[in-house]
Amino acid sequence: MKKAWSIVLTIAFIIVLLGAIAIGVGYLTGADLETVYTTLEDSQVALYINRLLGYWDVGYAYAQQFVADFPNQFAGLF
């Protein structure tokens, strides 16, 4: 497991490094963050994220209800 962790962390570090380089180069060559944000908002990514956030809200509400009703779950048994 230790070896697996070291491999995964190394790969993740390399990917993060590549991402940071890409962001740095983009900034240096004149990237506009507002344009990037509005473009992503209009694209499928924003829709997908919104849908996932909706699922998260539903799941969170269900978990809250489950925890609140937990003592009553076994009431019928006794």
Partner: peptide, 27 residues
Amino acid sequence: SFPKIANLLVALGAALILLAAGLIFLM
């Protein structure tokens, strides 16, 4: 989506960082 390469690079960089985070969560 991005006609300008600088914007494309920033979006790609953010996506790569997110991918690395996903990999760590999976592990």
